[in-house]
């Protein structure tokens, strides 16, 4: 068994409204940040998992993302995983 540190980034699917991102983007020029665009707000979820190897850890994390952490109607997810030595 090894331990893995996992970071899941959850994003809006293309075409899904992102009112938080749009609001932040609208506020930026007032602070002088006029060159920033394409602001997108999502979620970052960090946790640890014990598994035999990186493949089985990734499989479990994929499963938990599909079943709980992300809503497939609105969101996509990206998994970053690294072994904790």
């Amino acid at each position: 068994m090894a331990s893995y540190e996992v970071m899941v980034e959850i994003r809006h699917l293309p075409g899904i409204n992102d009112p938080e991102g749009a609001t932040v983007e609208r506020a930026l020029p007032a602070l002088g940040f006029s060159t920033i665009s394409k602001v997108s707000m999502g979620k970052a979820i960090r946790f640890s998992i014990d598994a035999d190897d990186v493949d089985s850890a990734t499989l479990s994390v994929n499963d938990v993302c599909k079943r709980l952490l992300a809503n497939p109607v609105l969101e996509s997810f990206e998994i970053k995983i690294r072994e904790i030595k």
Binding site: I16, N17, P19, E20, T23, N71, V73, L74
Partner: peptide, 17 residues
């Protein structure tokens, strides 16, 4: 009901936030 899949779609944050 949408989360469990008995109804389609999802309810996201109001566009006015």
């Amino acid at each position: 009901l949408t989360e469990v899949g008995l109804l389609p779609g999802a309810l996201q944050k109001n566009d006015s936030l």
